[in-house]
Nucleic acid binder design. Sequence first.
DNA 1: CGTTAGTTTGAGGCAGATCAACTTTGGTGG
DNA 2: CCACCAAAGTTGATCTGCCTCAAACTAACG
Lengths: 205, 205
Amino acid sequence: MQSLFDGLDSAAQAYPQRSFRRGEFIYSVGEESNNLWLLNAGIVGLFHISGSGKETLLRVFGPRVTLAHRSILDGGVHHATAIALSTAEAIAIPRTEFLAILNARPELLLALSRQLAQDLREAEERIARVMDRTASQRVAEALVYLRLRYPEHNWTRREIAEFSETTEETCTRVMGQLEARGLLVKQGRRFDLPAPDKLLDEAIA
Amino acid sequence: MQSLFDGLDSAAQAYPQRSFRRGEFIYSVGEESNNLWLLNAGIVGLFHISGSGKETLLRVFGPRVTLAHRSILDGGVHHATAIALSTAEAIAIPRTEFLAILNARPELLLALSRQLAQDLREAEERIARVMDRTASQRVAEALVYLRLRYPEHNWTRREIAEFSETTEETCTRVMGQLEARGLLVKQGRRFDLPAPDKLLDEAIA
DNA sequence: CGTTAGTTTGAGGCAGATCAACTTTGGTGG
DNA sequence: CCACCAAAGTTGATCTGCCTCAAACTAACG
């Protein structure tokens, strides 16, 4: 089955590609979602930033996926802020053109629905997990998820903490314990997980 | 715009209506989602139940909405358990027929996508909220949300707690404080919110 | 090398979970 | 209509995970 990104790729060729450096905003919460973004390269994080400055990493996007499709279908206002986590290349398609393409090609709308259904499952599993697991367990699970899914990215303690709903300090401490148990190896700022499956087993148990 | 429920209503007439009493399961986590459910009456809760028995109320369904659409689009396995919170009446449409109708009527698929987009926003807002707000604030927000959205239902402390990611005891204590401040009035097991907007203001501030 | 972003470590405090015992409610059936 | 009882709600005492604040350290990059 064709992905939403692939189905829109040819239409995107008509538009210029934009570059973002680490830390740059692709869009911000509250803005109108006038564009659908096609991410060609790099890693982008979708963040919720609260009044008190506390940040939550809601979703992570890698190459060959779309951004802002959810907002466009839900009232046209961004509910969160998309920030480049590494150098990123993306193309913006006008909202109206995106909707016209969806209208003309129901199979792409179906692909989009499936993506939303999957994202909703993942979000709801996270809601339940906060109550269900300790901070250590959540960090361990986040490490495995982020590392396996986006191995090329240099995940920081802060990013891991914001994804696992805990603090940077707790994250550091948990990673230290995992290192002591041989489940994590630090090399400068980078780290590796020699046995991700074992790590998950021990974390959940 | 036509809702998904309305679009499927005529097709549902071919199938018998089933009744559920409070506490009965409509479907369970892990089961295959062979049916789309049309809820005609009553309130249904979608729960995540962890190994340790801890329950989380993920979503609430009222009359004239569908259940299991997310699962059907996402691999066909239920990721949570649907339980009747009051006497409920619902009709099951076979998965295959549901998919055939979606295929024939893209406008219904669009309505479904919009619903998923909205549910995803609500779920992600909840993820951020757990870190962002105290237990008291979450309880206050849950009270307003549940009471205004489903005024006919007699929400129990347990249900409110499982929706606001806290415990029954905390929920009781918070409600006691709100009563002392005149923002909540108990009448036996029922309660009323004389000034929901004020309650929200004070809770968030 | 200087500078900044990222990481580590320690000490202290508290929100809220947990456990336990008790009270109230409201539906049921005798 | 009343007595009963299971489900729901309340209250208090205790305990702890992890957040918070602070301060020093270190990697990486221009």
